[in-house]
Nucleic acid binder design. Structure first.
Length: 881
DNA sequence: CGACTCACG
DNA sequence: ACGTACGTGAGTCGT
């Protein structure tokens, strides 16, 4: 079967340019459009396996269309130079792939594509046209379909005759009529003013074509519409003509000349190397992946039992780097395989754990806090060693934490990533050394020792570089006084773990399972068929195809069945409510009952989560295996999961202490807004206060609905407000949401000024900071892409607020830990949930503990509004409310 | 392995 | 005209 692929070169390149951040290779050449184009190209080659190919480009500024209409494409912004300079590179890529490309003065890429696709049609060749431009839909036939890029570059949606009909109710030829009526702002095609997509479709469904509409002006609905169409008849006809693709471009070749043979990786690889397309290179030449990794030889001593004494003197060094090799990433379960040490004189030692664990000199060094240790992931190291009964002190530097603070958005903080960034040094990644997935293996002996020695050596080299960067970014206090001590606090929290009532959890699970079974039966009955309710695809088919419920929202793969959609459909069919409940209960069983049961340790009946200190871009913690920061609380049924979290000792209690409205208090302080500050100083209910201001009513007149809406506005403010976001959340028209925001800013002018200021500053500096100088870079804050820029602007508003709140509770944690020690309390800090701390304590300590916790939590930073802490205790987490 | 959905602050 | 609320992690489906 013959298959032709035609690519709209400019359109795809342009999409790529705006979809991807402005990448450059190390030579400073912009490559984002080239990269995106090439990604798309490879995907098409892989999926379509074409026998013939051509990429068409636009040529020159003027085309035959300008003769009839000089303003064609008139309102376009000038093409940025960063884009234009990438076109020759794209052509180089095509040469390397041996794919033909073509452009012709006076014509657009569309016309070339149209001409060839018609030719192919005549010869019965199947054609796929790849473009980001909907205009080309007019070319679709039985033999020709469109791959229209959606989000990003490589995601394309297939449009054949059927798909066009499903979406618009039109035949492909009618697309030009559609444009004729509605116009096209990007090409400056006027159409009929006041007629958008909705009206145009309605008219075409009835009258088929522009001409049909013009013949029947008298039958058009609405006086205004009649007038407009009649007034702009010529303009409509001309618009249709402009939108029509010319399928008769004179070409000096034909479809037969477009043969494409599979490309040869040897020919493409050098270009990919030059452009620095690492991932793509690996795809075409997997074997070359590690080839440029010339790892330097390292001289590492593997310690045997007999030469221990000879090496004891290494522990006299003031400072060593230390890496603890584990059997798996979860250090609560992992075994230690061995220890690597390096000093500043390039001496490297690997100590197998069998030897290290009983070596007195080593243990003494570990516990000696005057012996400085540079580690990578202090928390993991401490916990792993502690599980063997080894306390360790004197961690003066954590490479991982330092890298995170310097740039928390950076995707990789593996040692090899950091060495690459900061030392321009190539260190093999763990994945390269150990393999991944099923191929993963544990190294042994010499190989392992060398890999680890490279790491500890890199750590020694990295430490001063990172320390310098921390200082110059004013991050040193945040690092040394907060994050590094916090790592120790978190290590203890995780190591203690949280006690869980396993039997209770099991019986809760059984109860929920019963409910689920019942709901399943009901749903099958109501649907009249059995299907997998957990599959959005099958569920969509039942709801929208079989039961005929209206489709309110689509995802890129099909119908959306998310809760907000289902809630709107609930009044139309009783099955919807059942499904919502089924989902709720199903979530509780799989994530919380089964998920938590898997994480209970046999040794102590506890759960030991890991708090990730180096994940979030804002400075918050996150929690994994299991995530204890998202245990249900909002709905009563789910909240019962909290009944299984209990104290670990007899006569102990759980105490929870949570900050009241910490983010809005932070906002009040950062913005200095008088009204908001006043509200908190007067200890008012802030949402009620906002309702009074936004709706201009007295306190007594605030209805629950008004308070709920005001609360959503407050959330919106913290998230970096947009009228659209608020309208979605409140399910109200966008205009109304916009008015809420406007009235909010009238009442809180300081907040408005602050938001504008923080965005402005971010645009100048390229980053935002929190109260304790935590930093987040926003490289896209000046992007030309509206979406990317807007996102960065909202982030600029949100990060100082969320991040400062994170700073505050982290500082409270370190101080609470100190206070427990000073006051000689047995109470322990167990969990942190962003604005809440959970402790366990013997009954007799509860009073003293709560006094101390309140005192410490209220005072980590000086602010213009007080911090307020609510406290509750109970025999289970459920009861601490 | 990505998409979808949903739990939390 | 565009197409978004901020920050996370986990389970399930289906390619």
């Amino acid at each position: 079967m013959d298959k032709l692929v035609l690519i709209d070169g400019n359109s795809i390149a342009f999409r790529a340019f705006y979809a991807l951040p402005l990448l450059t290779n190390s030579g400073g050449t912009y490559t984002n459009a080239v990269y995106g184009f090439t990604m798309m190209l490879m995907k098409v080659l892989e999926e379509e396996k074409p026998h013939r190919m051509l990429v068409a480009f636009d040529a020159g500024k003027y085309t035959f269309r300008h003769k009839d209409y000089r303003e064609y494409k008139g309102k376009r912004d000038k093409t940025p130079g960063e884009f234009s300079e990438q076109i020759p590179l794209i052509k180089e890529v095509l040469d390397a792939f041996r794919i033909r490309y073509y452009e012709r003065e006076g014509y657009e890429a569309d016309d070339i594509i149209g001409t060839l696709s018609r030719q192919a049609d005549d010869r019965g060749i199947d054609t796929a046209i790849v473009t980001g431009d909907k205009d080309l839909l007019q070319l679709v036939t039985d033999h020709t379909h469109l791959l229209l890029t959606r989000k990003g570059v490589t995601e394309a949606e297939k449009y054949d005759i059927q798909a066009i009909h499903d979406k618009y109710g039109l035949h492909p030829e009618q697309i030009i009529d559609l444009k004729g009526l509605m116009g096209d702002a990007s090409d400056n095609i006027p159409g009929v003013p006041g007629v958008g997509e909705k009206t145009a479709l309605k008219l075409l469904h009835r009258f088929e074509t522009v001409e049909g509409v013009l013949r029947n002006i008298d039958d058009l609905p609405g006086k205004k519409l009649k007038e407009r169409v009649s007034e702009h008849r010529e303009q409509a006809k001309m618009s249709k003509e402009l939108a029509t693709i010319l399928c008769e471009v004179p070409l000096d070749f034909s479809v037969e000349d477009l043969n494409y043979e599979t490309f040869s990786p040897e020919r493409v690889a050098p270009l990919f190397k030059q452009l620095e397309f690492k991932t793509l290179l690996e795809k075409i030449q997997p074997e070359s992946a590690g080839e440029d990794l010339e790892t330097e030889a390292v001289d590492v001593r593997i310690l045997g039992k007999d030469d221990r004494d000879a090496w004891e003197e290494i522990f006299e060094k003031d400072c060593l780097s230390l890496f603890t090799e584990l059997t798996e990433p979860n250090y609560h379960r992992a075994e230690v395989l061995g220890i690597a040490l390096s000093d500043e004189n390039d001496r490297h030692l690997y100590i197998p754990w069998e030897i290290a664990k009983d070596w007195k000199a080593f243990r003494r060094w570990l516990t000696d806090d005057s012996k400085e240790k540079v580690a990578y992931d202090v928390k993991a190291t401490r916990v792993a060693l502690k599980r063997y009964g080894l306390e360790s002190e004197g961690y003066t530097f954590d490479i991982l934490l330092a890298s995170y603070l310097i740039d928390p958005s950076e995707s990789g903080h593996e040692l090899s990533d950091i060495a690459d960034r900061k030392l321009k040094m190539t260190l093999p990644s763990d994945e390269a050394v150990y393999g991944k997935g099923a191929k993963r293996r544990q190294l042994e002996g010499e190989e392992l020792a060398e890999h680890l020695a490279r790491k500890t050596k890199a750590m020694i080299d990295l430490q001063p570089v990172l320390a310098e960067e921390l200082e110059s970014a004013q991050l040193d206090s945040l690092y040394f006084d907060l994050e590094l001590p916090l790592a120790g606090v978190l290590a203890r929290m995780e190591w203690y773990g949280v006690q869980v009532d396993r039997d209770r959890l099991r019986s809760l699970g059984q109860e929920l399972q019963k409910q689920l079974d019942e709901r399943t039966r009901t749903i099958y009955e109501l649907a009249g068929t059995e299907f997998n309710i957990n599959s959005p695809k099958q569920l969509g088919e039942v709801l929208f195809d079989k039961l005929g419920l209206p489709v309110l929202k689509k995802t890129k793969t099909g119908y959306s069945t998310s809760a907000d959609v289902l809630e709107k459909l609930a009044p139309r069919h009783e099955i919807v409510e059942e499904i919502l409940h089924y989902r709720q209960v199903g979530k509780l069983i799989s994530t919380y009952v089964e998920g938590l049961l898997k994480e209970i340790y046999d040794e102590d009946g506890k759960i030991h989560t890991r708090f990730n200190q180096t994940i979030t871009a804002t400075g918050r913690l996150s929690s994994t295996d299991p995530n204890l920061q998202n245990i249900p609380v909002r709905l009563e049924e789910g909240r019962r999961i909290r009944q299984v979290f209990i104290p670990s000792e007899e006569n102990w209690w759980l105490l929870s202490a949570d900050y009241s409205q910490i983010e809005l208090r932070v906002l009040a302080h950062l913005s200095g807004d008088k009204n908001l500050i006043e509200a908190f100083r007067g200890d008012m209910d802030v949402h009620t206060k906002t309702a009074m201001d936004v709706f201009h009513v007295d306190q007594e007149e605030v209805t629950p609905l008004m308070r709920r809406q005001a609360k959503a506005v407050n959330f919106g403010i913290v998230y970096g407000i947009s009228d659209y976001g608020l309208s979605q959340n409140l399910n109200i028209p966008r205009k109304e949401a916009g008015e809420f925001i406007q009235r909010y800013f009238e009442s809180y002018p300081g907040v408005k000024a602050y938001m504008e200021d923080v965005v402005k500053k971010a645009k100048e500096e390229g980053y935002v900071t929190t109260m304790l100088h935590r930093r987040r870079f926003l490289p896209e804050i000046n992007s030309k892409n509206y979406n990317r820029r807007s996102f960065a602007e909202r982030t600029a508003m949100n990060t100082p607020i969320q991040g400062t709140a994170a700073d505050i509770i982290k500082k409270a944690m370190v101080r609470v830990d100190e206070a427990l020690e000073e006051e000689q309390l047995n109470a322990r800090l167990l969990l942190q949930v962003h604005d809440e701390l959970i402790f366990e304590a013997p009954e007799e300590e509860l009073e003293k503990l709560s006094d101390q916790v309140r005192r410490v939590m209220e005072g980590p930073v000086k602010m213009s509004v007080p911090l307020k802490v609510d406290m509750n205790w109970g025999k289970t987490w459920f009861e601490t409310k």
